[in-house]
């Protein structure tokens, strides 16, 4: 049974008639140009925005759940994050435990170790660099041990080493009963790391399936208006933009 299933989901003019499912153990990449609806979809799943249509969690209606129960199952890492106060890294991570009503030290430490921020627990988060902060925000989500992890461009401010590390971490996280839905812009990374891709265009799903099924020249031409050269057979996959596509 699908972990989460969207049926005819819409959100004003940003998302239209979406049908999507995530299976346990899956890492699904959400791709598409700016304004395609990636963040809106993640917001909707996280409960930040309310849309129409039906969202089922293992066959049950998600809307019938309390906010707290939902927050225990679904963790959300927004695109931009900032702490209004100079909280310590430990306090930021322990925010992830809010839906559980505890500040479980073991889980906080475990989340910090997974993202490599355990040495900074007592530092104020605003003293860290942007890339370091990005790992702390992710640790906050991991501390809640959600079954579904939603991450909005988690690689955006990371250097190559931590891009690799965080992807490997998300890959490991999407195991057993858990799944990860992550939005990203780098299609080659998406092809290399995700089980399935969902290509959004103007609030609708343009293509959904394995990287080979989704990353096809005609799809990318229709969505991004660019000509690309693709080689998904090599590892890691290669993708080069040749230039803007010619208008027919």
């Amino acid at each position: 049974m699908a972990l989460i299933e969207l049926k005819n989901v819409a959100l004003d003019r940003r998302l239209q008639a979406l049908d999507l499912d995530l299976q346990p153990g899956e890492l699904v990449g959400l791709i598409g140009p700016n304004g395609a609806g990636k963040s809106s979809l993640l917001n909707l799943l996280a409960g930040v925005e309310q849309g129409s249509g039906e969202i089922l969690w293992q066959g049950q209606k998600l809307s019938s759940w309390s906010l707290e129960t939902r927050a225990r199952k679904i963790g959300y890492l927004p695109q931009r994050c900032q702490s209004a106060w100079a909280l310590s890294v430990r306090d930021v991570i322990s925010l992830g435990r809010l839906p559980w009503g505890d500040e479980n030290l073991e889980k906080i430490l475990c989340a910090a170790q997974q993202t490599g921020v355990e040495d900074w627990l007592d530092l104020a988060v605003d003293q860290l660099s942007g890339g370091e902060q990005a790992r702390v925000w992710l640790a906050r989500v991991l501390a809640g041990e959600p079954q579904l992890l939603l991450a909005d461009e988690p690689l955006a401010s990371l250097d190559l080493f931590y891009q690799y590390q965080i992807l490997a971490l998300l890959r490991r996280y999407a195991q057993g009963e858990r799944a990860v839905l992550v939005s990203m812009h780098d299609l080659a990374i998406a092809a290399a790391s995700c089980d399935r891709l969902c290509l959004l265009h103007q609030g609708q799903i343009q293509a959904l399936g394995s990287p080979q099924q989704v990353l096809q020249k005609e799809h990318l031409r229709a969505v991004y208006q660019v000509e690309v050269e693709l080689d998904l057979e090599v590892h890691p996959p290669r993708l080069a933009v040749l230039g803007p596509s010619q208008c027919p």
């Binding site: 309390s66 906010l67 927050a71 900032q82 702490s83 809010l98």
Partner: peptide
């Protein structure tokens, strides 16, 4: 109190943490 703590990271995060 929980809401005040959750709001440290903004309204989006607070909502996703199950806070009204």
């Amino acid at each position: 109190r929980k809401l005040l703590y959750g709001l440290s990271l903004g309204e989006q995060v607070a909502t996703s943490l199950g806070l009204s």
